[in-house]
Structure formats: C-alpha cells, structure tokens
Design a protein around this nucleic acid. Sequence first.
DNA 1: CGTGCCCTTGAGTACAATCAACGTTCGTGG
DNA 2: CCACGAACGTTGATTGTACTCAAGGGCACG
Lengths: 239, 239
Amino acid sequence: MLDAHLKKLRARDDISAAEEQAIRAGVREVIKVPADGLVVRANQPLEVCTILLSGIAARQKDMPDGKRQITEIHVPGDFTDLHSFTLKRLDHDVVALSACSFAVLPHKYLEQITETQPHLTRVYWFGTNMDAAIHREWVVSLGTRSALARMAHLFCELHIRLGIVDLTRGDSFDLPITQQELAEMIGITPVHANRTLQELRKNGWLEFAGALATIKDLEALKRAAEFDPAYLYLERGRR
Amino acid sequence: MLDAHLKKLRARDDISAAEEQAIRAGVREVIKVPADGLVVRANQPLEVCTILLSGIAARQKDMPDGKRQITEIHVPGDFTDLHSFTLKRLDHDVVALSACSFAVLPHKYLEQITETQPHLTRVYWFGTNMDAAIHREWVVSLGTRSALARMAHLFCELHIRLGIVDLTRGDSFDLPITQQELAEMIGITPVHANRTLQELRKNGWLEFAGALATIKDLEALKRAAEFDPAYLYLERGRR
DNA sequence: CGTGCCCTTGAGTACAATCAACGTTCGTGG
DNA sequence: CCACGAACGTTGATTGTACTCAAGGGCACG
C-alpha cells in the first residue's frame, strides 16, 4: 500500500526496517476520493496528513475572480499535506484530479515521531523542503519561461517523479488530467494550452492524448524546457 | 543580534527562555556581505545555515540564457537557507541585495536540536513550510495576476513581513533594492517594472524612490493585489 | 440519442517585451 | 572643483505572445 511512498523516500535516503514499521503503524485509515473531489479545504483546522496512494492530486489556490492556480501536482507516494502538521491549516486546497486513494496519518502520530525518531523527522522535513524546491522551479517557469517551455518542463518533471515510483512504462505514463488543468498549472488559458500541446506534438517531442503522455524526444523536450533535474534532489544521502 | 529572528518566531509560537538560549548558543560567527555579494552558491555542499540580521537578501535562480528569477526576498530575522540543513545543497543562490550581515549556525548544531528539542525542531520546520507558502503565493501571482497586481502584492507582503520585525515606520519602510530586482521578482522587464511603479504612484497607492517605500493607500493596494495575508500564517499557535 | 464535457479552430485584442535613446544621480579621479 | 563614467531610472515606438470571445466537433455516458 505504501510501496510508492517508501520508494520515494528510499530514492533519497536509507529508511530502516524499524522506520518503515513506524510509518506503516501510523496509517489510521485509507480513504477514496472521486475525480474533482476536495481532499483538504484551505484554512480549515487540520489534524491529519494524507499520503497519495493512487491517482493524481493537486494543490490549488482559488482567486476571488474565479480563476484558480494549481501550485503543485502530486503523484502516488507523495505526502500531499505533510506541511499541515506544523502549519495547522493550509493556505490552499488539495483536490483529486482523478479518482484517488489516500492513507491517513494523524498529526498526533507525527508529533510522536518528532519526539522519538529524529532521523525520520529529518527525512520528512526534507520531503517538505523538496516540495518547496518544486515550488521554486515553478516560480522560475512562470517568471521566465515561454508557454511552450513551461509545458515541456512540466512533462519532464512528471516523467522523473513518476519514474521514481515506477509509474512510467519507458517514455510513456498515464496522466488522467485535462488540458484545462495543465493550463492552470502553467498559468495559461486552456485555449493556449491546447495550441502549446499541438506545437509539442508537431515538433515530434511529446504526445498527450486520452490521459496518456508519451515522450517522443526527451532530449529535445529537456532542451526546450531548459530542464535541469537538480531541484528534484535525485541523489541519495543521509539526512 | 537575533532580536528580529526571535520576534519572527514569537509572532507565531511560544519560544521558552531555554529555547532562546539554545538558538543563541548555536551562532558560531557573524559575517558581513557587501551589496550584490553571493552568500550561498547553488549546488555546493553546505554545512552551515545563515540567519539574516540586517539588510535585504534574496534567493535567485540563474537561467542558461542569463535571465534570473528571484524566488524569495528575505528580511532581517529570516533564516535564508534553513532548508539546506536537510537538502545538503541548494537548488538556488542566496545573494545580498544590499549590504547584509548574517549569523551562522552549523548543520551539526541543528542536528543536535532535532535530537534533543522536538518543539524547537517543529518551530523551524514550520519556518521552512512558511517559506514554501510564500513560494506558493508567488506562483499564484506569476500565474494569474497582472504586472500591476503582482507589484502591489509584493509591497503588501513586504509591509507585513517587515512590520513583524519592527522595520516599518508607519506605512513607510526602507527597501534598498533596484527596479531591476523588483522586475526579477515578479517576472517582468525592468522597463515594465518602471511603468508599473509609475502607475502605482499615479493612482496614489504607493511611492517607491530612493530605497524608500511609502504606502499611500493600503486598502487600495490590497484590493489591486487581491491580497490575503492568510499565507503568512500570522496567527499564533503551539507547534 | 441527446447532453455535457473536453478539445479544437478562427479572428480580433491587449498586455507586456523589445529595442533604442536619453536623463539623473553619484562616486571617482584628474 | 569639475569632468567623467557607471548604474539606475525614464520615455517612445514597435513587435509579439498569449488572451478573449465565439463557435463547432468528438466522444463518453446516461
């Protein structure tokens, strides 16, 4: 059940059998959320955190004028709201973009981990810092890259993040989200997202249709995106 | 020396005298960095963290084509690179935008804190999560807001963050940075930043000249920015 | 067999970028 | 003290990327 989560952790650090046991013991329940379902509402007091087990989820912020910005996309294995443990509430919603299932861990249990398991605490702290690193890269994308480069960059990121948890098949991966949602991630309109995807396809770099993404030319895609995976901290090390 | 830092911490949580002592005891040295000086270089192995004591600093990512994006601005009291404690290297530079001084704390010392002071650990974890929350709000700004709204939003944020550490005088505050640097934060060209500031001034909302910012109409500025301070977690609570 | 969601296309528009030049301020050295 | 240069700020003219509005097509699902 937590296989993807442990794969993600172990891609960056050593997790002992005892630590794995401590994580597994924290799961209180597993919940299912339908596509477009709300998992966490912004600014509500929270007492649990959730690990995405299957499906695609996202963090989003709604604007008064109805626009919304997705600030991060989540793949299986991700703690979608570990930061709520110290923040107590979130400044954004967590939503299921496709049908999702989540493991639920109480803040109380995580607090216990911080009292008794300093290494595991640092591993999870590292996890939230990686989320922040992803946010920074998205700031760079939105601030400096063209729509085409932003779209290419997003697919490069997903290719790696899904690869870590073995959810890629060669250069293909399932991505059950809409063009509208892609647009909300990279800050363009759905119309422009459509044209951007057409251009990526026309260039022979990427196909995206029917919830399936296929990278046709990874090197070209990376070049167009100015993609440097350093921000994903793929190297292993002891925290 | 750490007054601003403790003010920032105590705005959100209780810090005991013993915890304050533990923080103070961690400072190994104080370093001075001139304007435009590099404090931390991206991707270099790190063994210390730095607290900004005076001046304005920033996190920035350089692009291959020479453009740069500032991903966060730092005010006195901020840990500019606490996330390096678990990340071991950073995906971005830290630079001094004006002449700055920093307190330096070794990772080893912070590790000791995680082994012996769970509450203080959570307080600092919370701190890095607040940085991530600021990143998210910048993602929203860059993804959905106009240049005018982004600029207004930035000044609203700075007004609050500087106010927490008592560096505002009424609705004025020192901000020794250039229009070019403002432009690099909100993802526009220096030319457009100049015109945007002119429009803010013309509207009677904000003046910015000679490193001094003066908010003339805070409510109008907030309205233009769609500013909601929830992401700054201004409420106090026990972590 | 509709109905609604998602994707696609076209035409006109606007915000911000680019390019180029000029003004201002301030520090430095002659 | 003044000439000079560099950095910062300002303005104008033009270009282009992405937005808006509008309409139509494909497909799944009830």
